[in-house]
Structure formats: C-alpha cells, structure tokens
Nucleic acid binder design. Structure first.
Lengths: 220, 220
DNA sequence: TACATTGCTGACCCGTCAGTCATTAAGTCG
DNA sequence: CGACTTAATGACTGACGGGTCAGCAATGTA
C-alpha cells in the first residue's frame, strides 16, 4: 500500500543530477558543494551520483557542457544570417545573451568559472576553449562587419568585443555574489539599454563632414 | 655560533602575516588557503598565526581593510579637488585606480571577494559597505558634476558610474582567474584607452545644433 | 649564572567530505 | 510466486585542515 522507498529511474537520473548540481555549484561554488547535498536535492543518495558520474570533477564538466553549447550555436547562427545594420545585430546578440543566459540559472556559470578555474585549471581550460573563445569570436566577427562597412569608426575589434559584454558579464557575476549581501537597486533592462546607448554612440562613425576627436591626455 | 632556530619579532609579525595571507588568498581563494601555508610563507608556524589573529576569518578581514581604505581616500580627494573638464577627471580616476590597484597585488581582491562573499556573507557585507559603496559614490559624484555642467548628455549617473569601471574590474578579475589557464593577449593600457575613448564619446553631449539619436529597437 | 617572562613551536584533536562497497529492494520474466 | 538482475542505498574509510595547548627556547633581569 505505501509507496516504495525509491524507484528505478535510470533514464531520468542524469538530467536531474545535472540540474541539482548546477543549482548548488552556483549557490556555493565547486569546492564548497557537498555531493551529499547534490544527491539529496536530486532525490537520491550519494552513492547514486557515482553510478552516473565518475567523480565530482566530471559532474562539474558535464554541467558546463550541457548548459552553454546550444546557446553558442544560436549566437553563431544570428551573426551568419543577420542582414541590416550592425548596431542592430549587436543589440540582438546582447538581447539574446540576456534571455538565454542572463535570465536563466546558467547566469551563475561565469561567476562559478571565475571563482574555481584557478584551483581547477583543467576545467578552466575547457571553459576557456569551448565557451569563451567561441563566444568572443562570434562577437568579434560581428564587430568586424561593422568596421568593414564603415558603420563603426576605426577601432580594434578585439577590444570592442570585450567592451560590449564586460558590463553584462560583470552584472551577472555581481548578482551571484554581492546581491546576497545587499539587495541591488540595479534595473537590468535599463542598465543594458543605457550601456548599448552609450556604447553604440561611442562606436558609430561620425556623420560625414563633422569630426570630434576625443583623445587621451593621460601620460604614457 | 649557529643562528637561533627562530627570533622574537612581535612587531613585524602581523604585517608579514597579512602580506603572506593576501598572496595566498588571492592565489587560491579563501577556503582553499591553508593557514599552515600562510604561516610557512610568513616564516612562522601555524600556532603563531593564532597569536595575532583570532581566526581565519578575522585574518581575511584584516587583509581587506589594510589594502583598500587608503586608496579610497586618494580618490575622494581627487574628486573634491579637481578643476577642469569632467572627462579629464574620469580619465584621472581610472588611471589612479589602475596604478593603485590594477598594477598592485590588491588587484586580486575583486576576484577574491566575488568568489567568497556568498559563502562568507559577513565579509561580503563588510566589503560592500566599506569599499564598493564608497568607491561607487565617489565616481557617481564625478559623473553628476558632468551632468550638472552640461558636459555629458542626460544619463543616469548610477549606471554610468558602473559602466565606467565594469571593463576594468572585469579585466583584473580575468587576470586572476583565466589568465592562469591561457596567456591573455590583452594589452591593458591600450584596452583602457580604447574603453575611455568609446565611453567618453558616448557620454559627451552632442555639439550644439547637431543631434544624432541612437535608440533601442529591442522589445522591452 | 640563575631565574623569570613570553614569543613561538608542532603534535594533536576533531569535524568534514570525496569516494567505496557490501547490502537491500525494485522491477522483470517465466 | 520464486528466481534473477541491477538500480539504489548509506555506513564506512581515509585524507585533509581549522583550531588548541603543553612545552620549548629566545630574551630580559639581577
């Protein structure tokens, strides 16, 4: 009459374990997450974790892999297929990142990787190669198109690509660290719009016939 | 004839322990740093650490306190005493931060706090109140002066202050995390100059008689 | 030299947690 | 139902590291 103490659900376990692990890694960091807790949140015991993943490290890698690769593919498709102004493409990439990462539990991964990759260099290298380099390349390609067409003024696409996403990345890093000490008054949408507003005005080539130089006067 | 096994140096110990702790906390993070190693790097044994600091947590707090308060005082003075264009003031603040933090061992603190503050909320609150809020206020005040004088166009100084430092903070966070997995090709000075170049062009009010709107077309 | 003071040592204690494995019981088949 | 397979359990091990403290040795005093 009573429910069985546990059920056999071989197919569903890995996904449930990955979801639980993502939550806890993001909440507490890699080192501070106990596999007992991951198991409990997934509704199993610790031994079960080891039926599906050979070690804590492999579990971590699986979480990162499952989460971000599909999003990168979406972004690459956007760059390849976009027609129209590059300013618009950049707005769309930022918006897509915000919806696909910023508003999902995967928003915790940047902070997680920043925190842990120095103590787990193999994981860091994996994330750098498979995620960051690929994302960066995608954005740089978009910027390059803006340079080629003359829509943007003459700037280094390497740096511009970083500058586009730096405020966004830092925002989600923030949310998963300091926001738990003190509620942030930051309104993400307004912040993003203001960033894009300033950035794109800064990038656009001046209208023909008018140049305003903004030069550094700092020494060195 | 041989040197004594150890010497009494009551006055010098705390500073040496703080320096060793800063290095190791920055290298490995708070949780992963063993007090045995801090002691060894400072040339003493673990017991000695507990003669000068009541716990690992208090040691951590002391490190943060010693490092950043003097720098904030310098920045506040710069804002209060500056005469001339606000674009110039912002360049100077950024340059001062880069020289006083970015190029020193304290550049590791942002990554350290980001990594640890969620697991040590008391530390996070301390850093947020004593360091970040104070630094943010200082920058916001500078931006406000630019708005009041009409040098900048009409923007939210709260967000602008964040946008000024986001790329810089992320850069040092990077340096203390991913750079150990793969040498970065980033040239910090050029990156900073390009950031300021784009940002300040984005902030400046258009010359009278010419307006170019850069509006969002993304849906909400 | 004898004695007192105290900065410093390092072996030890004890809680924690990744990883193991003997055991248990859910599901399956005849 | 009984025999069998295997998903799942959870007590256990061993390593690790924060924190303690009894004793030692460097220094001061007479």
């Amino acid at each position: 009459m009573q429910a069985p103490r546990w059920e056999r659900r071989k197919d569903a376990r890995p996904a449930e374990l990955l979801a639980a692990a993502l939550e806890l890694f993001v909440e507490r960091g890699y080192a501070a997450t106990r596999l007992d807790d991951v198991a409990k949140r997934a509704g199993v015991s610790k031994g079960t974790v080891y039926l599906y993943f050979p070690s804590k490290e492999e579990l971590f890698k699986a979480v990162v892999r499952e989460g971000l690769v599909p999003l990168l593919e979406r972004g690459e498709k956007m760059v390849a297929e976009h027609r129209g102004s590059i300013a618009e493409l950049i707005r769309n990439l930022v918006q897509g990142w915000w919806e696909g990462v910023g508003l999902t539990p995967y928003a915790g991964l940047p902070k997680l990787m920043i925190s842990e990759c120095r103590n787990f260099p193999e994981l860091g290298k994996f994330y750098l190669d498979e995620v960051m380099a690929r994302g960066h390349k995608l954005v740089r390609k978009a910027v390059q198109r803006g340079l080629d067409s003359g829509e943007f003024r003459n700037l280094d696409p390497e740096y511009v690509a970083r500058l586009i996403f730096a405020p966004l990345v830092l925002m989600v890093v923030w949310r998963y660290s300091f926001d738990f000490c003190s509620a942030s008054k930051l309104e993400p949408d307004a912040y993003i719009q203001q960033h894009l507003d300033i950035l794109l005005q800064g990038l656009l080539a001046p209208a023909p016939g008018r140049l305003r130089a903004v030069r550094s006067t700092a020494k060195s």
